[in-house]
Design a protein around this nucleic acid. Structure first.
Lengths: 362, 362
DNA sequence: ATTAGCACTCGGAAAGAAAGAGTGCTAGCA
DNA sequence: TGCTAGCACTCTTTCTTTCCGAGTGCTAAT
């Protein structure tokens, strides 16, 4: 199933031509590039079409790469592209101003990725699932107590609970013991209805409070696990001829705008060796992406966390350029967050190192 | 300049007809509604056109409201619309789950507003400008010190500064005195180049550090003043026939996506008596909005802060419905944030009152 | 003041014609 | 056997042309 060298060159030329122009490419135009007559090209293209690498929109149009054609191109044919000085400089400059809050950083990285690639982009950092390390209950008055939960990631969450009936100190103590016994060390997915039920049964006369505190716990854990995600440049889709149809564009933009759908799309196993994953058209799981491609890169976000940046576009995407840019940005983020070493081109002026800004109420 | 009753009815019918169908409305169709012949309507419409309330796309089309026509409609003709049970219920349910973080709350309110109105929407809360209350400088070692700034809103910001040369304890003390003298009590807009220059002159042998600390200060103040803004549903524009042209849609979506542009659009003086402001087509300052309308409502965000929710759409916008929905949501937000009283339909289960969740690193 | 009637004006849809790009195939050439 | 030149054919795109109808403005009658 190996292609002749010339077939490879032709396929490459078709893919790159189509990426550049969004028009089916014809034999005549290729003849110059390949260096043989258009008739020869036609023969070769005809074979590539029966092999499934090319497609014809209609009888008398040029050829367009099929998903399989793109796949072959991405896996074997495309050349790694280099970024220009200006591009690396722009990325470095943006990354140099790191933001203290992960949410804002993700938003900025999304913006950066989108503006560098000219496609809609997203950035997210996966947080590992957290559990509660310990609960403390503070008895305020007979109608009021505070729950304090210390999470495994050392975040502290609290909630003031005001009751329409009264409780005693001992009841709160019981509650505390119950929660520390049943609800610590478990992630939000592991908290099942049955655990809540059995805790309620064990709670005696405070069973009514179990649901309240349990739902607070769930909320905290879910919130702590939610990956911060930055999405940017969705409207850039409209620049692409394949999304000139407002309905198509709308459908995909809706999909993109919903961060949770993107998170579902993350690779379960891992990425390619180079840290880049390309998913082409029908390879995508989500129905909304069947006509689009996604290029994704992962980075090391420190503390054992992994992050992802990605770009959504037509199958006719500039895979090579996008992959190069994502690689570079991802590498920069890894350095920034995991602190492997100082980014190559970063502008280290007077301030050589800076702590994170901490915010707290005074 | 008062219109006859019949003219008002005709104008209203034209505006509402055009809002509903996006097609110019003709005399024939109106004749049924108004109850007189189409010829009469034509005469009246002709007058309304010379008065500037209606426009003709071309000689043989129906009439379309002019901006002045919309304005008159919004100010005097349109009836306050009531929300349906389902709508109020949906809003109440969404608002019941208030988020602890203002950024997330704004994002959610933006979503809510957009989904209720079917237009792109934004939500933001203005923070009052802050200043630094006091600076503290902590000398770590001869190459390192920490700046700590306590802001007027009681936030604390800090930065570890690592130097490529060495400083003495006394120099840091001098610096501290200088900054506490010159950079406290001023907002970021009041920090001018000349203040920085004169401080540098006064700084003696530590003049090199002034710029670093000053820029840190500016950063903190700017960050603290930045209004959290939630933008949602930009792609809904594509549902509107006037934005089927991808280029138009793109231009406006870009504008919307840039939150800072929206903030610029806020009313300097205040809103109408009902807390609603409608800006129609050319009334908008921003060039990108000249063909669009903005409906905005303000709410009380507590602590003397004001917030705004708004919707962007074609001039042919459902002003009445949108205004009603924004009013309702804004009122709900005022109650929620300023705590005037419990929202009418809110579901107050067991938990009657809850504190805000505080997050801090442990 | 209102209405019926009528000629007129455009924009938009439909239909037709011409242009152009690209193919597949056949036949000839190294 | 592999490549190339030539040619008839296909099919989309684009440009005209035509036609239709909705809606108007005006005039005359009620």
């Amino acid at each position: 199933m190996d292609l002749s060298d010339r077939k490879k060159r032709i396929l490459t030329a078709v893919v790159e031509g189509y990426i550049a122009t969004a028009e089916p490419v014809g034999s005549k135009h290729l003849a110059e590039q390949i260096g043989c007559s258009s008739a020869t090209i036609r023969n070769e293209m005809s074979e590539l079409t029966t092999m499934g690498y090319l497609e014809q929109p209609h009888t008398s149009a040029g050829r367009v790469p099929s998903p399989a054609g793109y796949r072959l191109y991405v896996n074997e044919l495309m050349e790694k592209q280099k970024l220009t000085e200006a591009e690396t400089a722009a990325i470095n400059e943006k990354l140099a101003r790191k933001d203290e809050q992960i949410e804002k950083l993700m938003a900025e990285v999304g913006q950066l990725t989108s503006s560098m690639t000219q496609y809609p982009a997203y950035a997210l950092t996966m947080k590992p699932p957290v559990a509660v390390k310990r609960f403390d209950f503070i008895y305020v008055d007979q109608n009021t107590f505070i729950v304090v939960a210390l999470l495994t990631d050392n975040m502290v969450k609290n909630k003031l609970i005001h009751l329409p009936f009264s409780v005693h100190q001992e009841q709160i103590t019981t509650l505390s013991a119950l929660f520390n016994a049943n609800f610590t060390g478990v992630t939000d997915r592991e908290i099942t209805e049955s655990i809540i039920r059995s805790t309620e049964r064990a709670a005696g006369d405070t069973y009514g409070l179990v649901a309240v505190v349990a739902s607070f716990t769930m909320e905290c854990l879910a919130a702590a696990r939610t990956a911060p995600v930055g999405i940017a440049g969705a409207s850039r889709l409209l620049n692409q001829p394949e999304y000139r149809d407002p309905d198509k564009a709308h459908a995909l933009m809706n999909f993109i705008a919903d961060g949770s759908r993107l998170v579902d799309d993350l690779p379960p196993a891992g990425m390619g060796a180079d840290g880049i994953r390309v998913t082409i058209g029908p390879e995508n799981l989500a129905e909304e992406l069947k006509d689009s491609s996604v290029v994704m890169a992962s980075y090391d976000a420190g503390d054992g966390m992994r992050g992802y940046i990605g770009v959504v576009g037509p199958t006719r995407m500039d895979y090579s350029g996008v992959a190069a840019k994502l690689s570079y940005i991802a590498a920069g983020l890894s350095r920034l967050l995991a602190g492997t070493d100082a980014p190559a081109g970063l502008d280290n002026k007077l301030v050589l190192k800076e702590s994170e800004h901490h915010e707290q109420e005074g």
